[in-house]
């Protein structure tokens, strides 16, 4: 049975981590063809061809595909759907934007955020902010789904799949790209980092967030935030961890000044080791923390930073 995996592309680069994790999931379903679409997909396709488990790579370069716009990208995936029983993408902002559109165009349900593949039609996914896990069995002829990458290891780089060129579908011309505001950072990516240090409302201001970032830099970690910290303007939106933000599962997650609302826990409770620093000993975050420190973060975080490394 054949699987089409829509690779995650940013600019002209392959997002290796999310693509490689989704590939691990996809490979459990059958022979995987990786579709790499972009303004100029050649380099990203060459990267994808190296991933272990990719049987074939199709590169499609077209100006309409340069910015991940949903309509032309979905039209492309649908134009290729005929040969595949499973159509898969990582649960990134792009995957979540495009795959439900693909599913509706094929008149099938989308299966969002798959965390476990039971068999070719049966999948586990979290519901209610991860407070319940649902096993669903699809009755559709084609299964269109997004993969929760935190649940799968990244495929390695031992492959050498053949790359062929594909053609873009007609662009319905419904939307145009205006601009991207993307912060360039030397820090590791939030969803692939081994260590994440997150700050919450307790941090108090955008200026104070510097102490979170300093600790993160000392540890070579990514920086995360709670919704309250993002809503208050202390941190940018793409740092939000949780039910409606990013889902992370690093080796070490340090939550600072975060109370531990279920919506936040939904995005980080699969981390291997959780550390919480909070001045309220009753804070719910301590119920999931392996190591809890009841302390004022303005004392504890600089001290911790000083004593590490």
């Amino acid at each position: 049975m054949a699987v089409l995996l829509l690779a995650e592309v940013m600019g002209d680069d392959l997002s290796v981590d999310s693509t490689a994790k989704a590939l691990t999931a996809a490979a459990q379903l059958g022979d995987v063809t990786v579709l790499v679409a972009g303004g100029n997909a050649a380099a990203a396709a060459a990267e994808a061809a190296k991933l272990t488990g990719a049987s074939a790579v199709i590169a499609v370069s077209d100006a309409s595909l340069a910015n991940g716009l949903a309509e032309p990208l979905a039209a492309l995936v649908v134009s290729m759907a005929g040969d595949f029983e499973h159509i898969v993408a990582p649960s990134t902002a792009t995957g979540k934007n495009v795959m439900p559109r693909v599913a509706a165009l094929l008149d099938v349900m989308v299966i969002s955020d798959v965390m476990t593949i039971v068999d070719g039609d049966t999948f586990e996914r979290p519901i209610y902010a991860g407070n319940a896990i649902q096993t669903v069995k699809s009755a559709d002829a084609k299964k269109v789904m997004t993969i929760r990458t935190a649940g799968f290891d990244a495929a390695g780089e031992g492959g050498s799949a053949a790359v062929s060129d594909g053609a873009a579908a007609d662009n319905p011309g419904l939307s145009e790209w205006v601009e991207d505001k993307v912060e360039e950072s030397d820090r590791p990516d939030l969803t692939s980092a081994k260590i994440v240090v997150s700050g919450g409302r307790g941090v108090g201001s955008e200026e104070n967030f510097a102490i979170i970032e300093k600790l993160a830099d000392k540890l070579g970690a990514a920086v995360g935030a709670s919704r309250a910290a993002v809503d208050s303007g202390y941190a940018p939106n793409d740092w939000q961890v949780g039910q409606t933000g990013k889902v992370v599962a690093p080796e070490l997650y340090i939550a600072v000044g975060i109370s531990g609302a279920i919506q936040h826990l939904a995005g980080m409770k699969d981390s291997k080791i959780i550390v919480a620093i909070n001045k309220d000993e009753e804070a719910p975050i301590f119920q999931v923390a392996d190591y809890g420190l009841v302390a004022d973060l303005f004392d504890a975080v600089p001290e911790l930073e000083g004593k590490l490394g």
């Binding site: 790209w177 912060e183 940018p236 793409d238």
Partner: peptide
């Protein structure tokens, strides 16, 4: 709101 930050589009 997208993974890397913000994207503006005209629809």
């Amino acid at each position: 709101e997208v993974d890397g930050g913000l994207q503006t589009i005209k629809v």
